[in-house]
Amino acid sequence: MSPELRYDDRVAVVTGGGRGLGRAYALLLASRGAKVVVNDVGGSLTGVGTDGGPADAVTADINAAGGEAISSTESVVTAAGGRAIVEAALEHFGRLDVLVHNAGNVRRSPLRDMSYDDFEAVLDVHLRGAFHVLRPAFPVMCDAGYGRVVLTSSIGGLYGNHGVANYAAAKAGVIGLVNVAALEGAEHGVTCNAIIPAAVTRMAEGLDTSAYPPMDPDLVAPAVGWLSHETCSATGELFIAIAGRIARAFVGETVGLHRPSWTVDEVAEASGVIRDATHPVIFPVLPSGHDDHIGYGFAMATKATAAP
Rank of each mutant, 00 (worst) to 15 (best):
S2N: 11
E4F: 07
R6M: 04
D9K: 12
G18A: 05
Y25F: 15
A30Y: 06
A34V: 12
G42N: 06
T50L: 08
T50W: 00
D56P: 00
A57R: 08
T59K: 13
D61K: 10
A69H: 10
E74N: 14
E74F: 10
V77I: 15
G82P: 11
A88N: 11
A89P: 00
L96Q: 04
L96G: 02
D97T: 01
D97A: 06
G104V: 07
N105A: 15
N105T: 15
V106W: 09
R107P: 14
P110Q: 13
R112F: 04
M114R: 01
F119N: 09
F119D: 13
A121S: 13
V125G: 10
R128P: 00
H132M: 09
H132A: 12
R135K: 11
V140Q: 07
D143S: 09
G147T: 07
S153F: 02
A169R: 08
G173D: 08
I175N: 05
A181V: 04
L183I: 14
A186D: 14
H188M: 02
V190S: 00
C192T: 04
N193Y: 03
A198N: 11
A199C: 08
V200E: 11
G206L: 12
D208T: 05
D216G: 09
P222T: 03
P222Q: 11
W226N: 00
H229G: 12
A234H: 10
G236Y: 11
G256Q: 08
P260F: 09
W262Y: 13
W262N: 14
T278C: 03
T278N: 07
L286N: 03
P287D: 02
H293A: 08
G297V: 09
M300C: 01
A304F: 10
A306I: 02
